[in-house]
Design a protein around this nucleic acid. Sequence first.
DNA 1: TTCTAAATTTAGAACTATTCTATATATGAT
DNA 2: ATCATATATAGAATAGTTCTAAATTTAGAA
Lengths: 153, 153
Amino acid sequence: MMKSSAEQAAIEKRLKAAGVRPTAQRIALARFLLNGADHPTAEDVKKWADENFPKMSLATVYNTLALLVRAKLIKEVKLPHTSRVIYDDRVSAHYHFLDEKSGKIYDVDPSEVEVKPRLKKNASVRGVEVLLRGRWESESRQIRERRGKTHVQ
Amino acid sequence: MMKSSAEQAAIEKRLKAAGVRPTAQRIALARFLLNGADHPTAEDVKKWADENFPKMSLATVYNTLALLVRAKLIKEVKLPHTSRVIYDDRVSAHYHFLDEKSGKIYDVDPSEVEVKPRLKKNASVRGVEVLLRGRWESESRQIRERRGKTHVQ
DNA sequence: TTCTAAATTTAGAACTATTCTATATATGAT
DNA sequence: ATCATATATAGAATAGTTCTAAATTTAGAA
Ligand SMILES: [Mn+2]
Ligand SMILES: [Mn+2]
Ligand SMILES: [Zn+2]
Ligand SMILES: [Zn+2]
């Protein structure tokens, strides 16, 4: 586990390198977003701030998210199952998996899904977005059995 | 071209078959949505109604869209480039192509894009959504030339 | 034909997520 | 310390959609 102050220094360096002035609020949010948060919404980020950096305004949360997106330290992701934007510290192109039971989003490396457009139309494809839906964790044998038949003592 | 009254009768039949009572408003909207509209937003539908069925309320537009979705005569589609829902008269699974120049959405048959998930994780994939982005119409030679070099008389 | 109960339509209020505006505060170079 | 600029803040405004309560329309029943 990285020491908190060392982690803070590393975040400050990343912010500066990206041309973002490292204010107290930005450092706090960047620490959350870049180490630990997992596809949070703006509301998730505000909730974290309320618990860990009291008095931060919602405007600062949105301002900082937009700033970090512009600086390419995080990415905005819009998925069809919710109207909330989620923020992603993985900034390279990748796909997502939505676990329909838990609502959780998992990252999927592009190498894990072969996508080959063979369009009839002679169009130029400049990008592909893929969302997989299903169950991320396979159900355990126990749970499957419990669902499949009435339990007899 | 189908005669208007025959078309109306066909729409009424489809509504009844789907368990939807064919009121005047619903027939009008279904005609637009099922014959002619191309991935309209609720706003597009309201605009059409204002021109073709005056006095229809926005609530009726939304109520009817929700009803037709429940009846599986249309599908809701949420794409990442806009916060507006679009409505699709193609109800079977398919993909979409966003022309980034025009903003227009085109349907892509699943057979036109090979998608093979090979996840490391042992997850069960129950559905796949694909959005392709790019230029649907290839640029013409003329336009490419005009962009590529200064035009000399 | 009324009558009636249920379904539908309507106008506008409410709501959610986000962006904007105006003011206050903090920063850091001189 | 002063000043100019950047940042943070509270709350208003906005966009898209859903909800609420009242009015209208409808399909049968009488
Ligand atoms: Mn991370
Ligand atoms: Mn059509
Ligand atoms: Zn991701
Ligand atoms: Zn479509």
